[in-house]
Amino acid sequence: MISDKYSITLEKPSVEEFLNLRNKIGWGELDFDLAKMSLDNSLFHVIVRDNTQLIGMGRIVGDGAMYFYIQDVIVDPSYQNSGIGTALMEQLENYLTVAAQKGTTIGLFAAKGKEAFYARFGYILRPSESLGNGMCRFV
């Protein structure tokens, strides 16, 4: 449960806010137009504000049918460990409870050291007994 002084809403952040929050956690520079297109094409957004300041966000991307990916669960470093990440995940999971049907795959890439956080929500590590390594390619 997050503090009553923070507001949580189901809306996308501005591109400037998104880029600023990414920079605060060290994810580096990203082209404005690329970020805008990515936010615009997301399936679902949730944000947390302290007054007007964006302090956390999460979103879901995918095809809206068989594949959903939890993306950009970000909490401003000065607000971490205060329940904001959990509140974001709860909202993302609420959306998925309705949108994801039997046969759906929900994926995510955990930042190093954050695997246990996502395991609390039922996500499993790869590789496992039946699954190979997850892979990605950065451009």
Score class of each variant (00 low, 15 high):
residue 2 I to T: 10
residue 7 S to T: 15
residue 9 T to N: 15
residue 10 L to I: 11
residue 11 E to Q: 15
residue 12 K to I: 01
residue 12 K to P: 06
residue 13 P to C: 08
residue 15 V to Q: 00
residue 17 E to G: 07
residue 18 F to Q: 02
residue 19 L to V: 07
residue 21 L to E: 06
residue 24 K to N: 01
residue 24 K to G: 00
residue 26 G to W: 07
residue 29 E to V: 11
residue 29 E to F: 07
residue 31 D to K: 12
residue 32 F to Q: 11
residue 33 D to A: 04
residue 34 L to A: 10
residue 35 A to P: 00
residue 35 A to T: 02
residue 37 M to H: 11
residue 37 M to V: 07
residue 37 M to G: 07
residue 38 S to Y: 13
residue 44 F to D: 04
residue 45 H to A: 03
residue 48 V to S: 14
residue 48 V to I: 15
residue 49 R to V: 12
residue 51 N to K: 15
residue 51 N to L: 14
residue 52 T to L: 14
residue 53 Q to F: 04
residue 55 I to P: 09
residue 55 I to R: 11
residue 56 G to Q: 08
residue 59 R to F: 02
residue 59 R to A: 04
residue 60 I to P: 09
residue 61 V to G: 01
residue 62 G to D: 06
residue 62 G to T: 03
residue 62 G to R: 00
residue 69 Y to L: 03
residue 69 Y to V: 11
residue 69 Y to D: 03
residue 71 Q to K: 03
residue 72 D to N: 10
residue 76 D to H: 12
residue 76 D to K: 00
residue 80 Q to P: 09
residue 81 N to C: 12
residue 82 S to E: 15
residue 84 I to A: 11
residue 85 G to E: 02
residue 86 T to Y: 09
residue 86 T to V: 10
residue 87 A to V: 08
residue 87 A to G: 14
residue 88 L to M: 04
residue 90 E to H: 12
residue 90 E to G: 06
residue 90 E to M: 13
residue 91 Q to I: 05
residue 92 L to V: 15
residue 93 E to V: 14
residue 94 N to D: 15
residue 94 N to W: 02
residue 96 L to N: 03
residue 96 L to Y: 04
residue 97 T to W: 05
residue 98 V to Q: 11
residue 98 V to Y: 08
residue 99 A to C: 09
residue 100 A to M: 03
residue 102 K to C: 04
residue 104 T to E: 09
residue 109 F to M: 14
residue 115 E to G: 10
residue 115 E to C: 07
residue 116 A to W: 01
residue 116 A to P: 02
residue 116 A to Y: 05
residue 118 Y to A: 07
residue 119 A to W: 02
residue 119 A to V: 05
residue 120 R to P: 02
residue 121 F to M: 06
residue 123 Y to M: 05
residue 128 S to F: 12
residue 130 S to F: 15
residue 132 G to I: 03
residue 132 G to T: 10
residue 133 N to P: 06
residue 134 G to A: 11
residue 136 C to P: 00
residue 138 F to T: 11
residue 139 V to W: 11
